[in-house]
């Protein structure tokens, strides 16, 4: 049985697609699943640094498309979790180097040797978005609780609906519980209500995510991190488990005083 292909998309840039891809990839690998993360952002390669695998890349997805190497040759194996592999984007090419048919073929080929293929979509709704969602069995839409990000997410949902019937779920990223409590930020309920789409995770703003990006060690690997717990829970929900949502507490006064909040 071939694995499931999940595309992480958002419309708007900078909402945390790559962070989500890296953490869910590792989260599923932690559950013993064979995972291939594909960086579909040709020309703006990021997933490799998020995962801390940038030094071990030999080939990239365009080399596979052009037949210079096989798909397994291009995959970079994670040393921490050996069931996770990365198919890097090409950094010195652009999105026109790959077609929807290429992406579809490579993603399905990857799904033959993995339980999950997770595709990190480029921002925007043009060619890069279209080829990234083409092979998807499920699209996870990442948004932030902000007007512009929610608007773009709605546009993506509209395009997916117009384009066929690939199921989609929502991840709300960078929610600040303290601001929600003071009614200064959209809460998860309003965002879900506005977008009319099923929710699969709410990730609180977490300074640990910045540090994780610096080190190339995603928070999902940190057992003490709340954001890490959220990603581990989303991974379990993807596996079909019914996991209750975590209560989102605002950091305590002392933590706010001494921390970065």
């Amino acid at each position: 049985m071939r694995g499931k292909i999940i595309t992480i998309s958002s419309g708007k840039g900078g909402v945390g697609k790559t962070t989500v891809t890296a953490n869910l990839g590792l989260g599923l690998a932690l559950l013993g699943q064979r995972v291939i993360c594909m960086d579909a952002d040709i020309g703006l390669r990021n997933l490799d640094v998020m995962l801390g695998l940038e030094n071990r890349i030999v080939y990239d997805i365009i080399n596979v498309v052009e037949g210079r190497c096989t798909l397994p040759q291009a995959l970079v194996r994670d040393k921490r979790l050996r069931t996770l592999r990365l198919l890097p984007a090409a950094q010195t090419r652009d999105k026109s180097a790959i077609t929807e048919a290429d992406m579809d073929r490579i993603a399905h080929q990857a799904a033959e040797i993995a339980d999950y293929v997770i595709i990190d979509s480029p921002a925007g709704i043009e060619h890069g978005f279209r080829y990234a969602v083409k092979p998807a069995d499920l699209v996870l839409i990442v948004t932030n609780p902000e007007v512009a990000a929610v608007r773009d997410a709605d546009r993506v949902i509209g395009l997916l609906e117009a384009d066929g019937h690939v199921p989609a779920r929502l991840i709300i990223n960078r929610l600040k519980p303290a601001l929600v409590r003071r009614n200064e930020m959209l809460d998860a309920n309003s965002v879900v209500d506005l977008l009319a789409i099923g929710l699969i995770g709410i990730v609180p703003e977490d300074v640990g995510i910045l540090a994780a990006g610096n080190r190339g060690r995603p928070v999902v690997l940190d057992e003490k991190s709340v954001a890490g717990q959220v990603f581990r829970n989303i991974a379990r929900r993807l596996q079909g488990e019914d996991v209750p949502f975590l209560p989102l507490k605002a950091p305590s006064f002392l933590k706010r005083l001494f921390g970065a909040y």
Binding site: E146, V147, V150, R151, L179, V180, N183, E184, M185, L186, D187, S190, L194
Partner: peptide, 10 residues
């Protein structure tokens, strides 16, 4: 209520 303003505009 930044929340309400954001909601209405959205």
């Amino acid at each position: 209520s930044g929340k309400e303003v954001a909601e209405q505009r959205l």
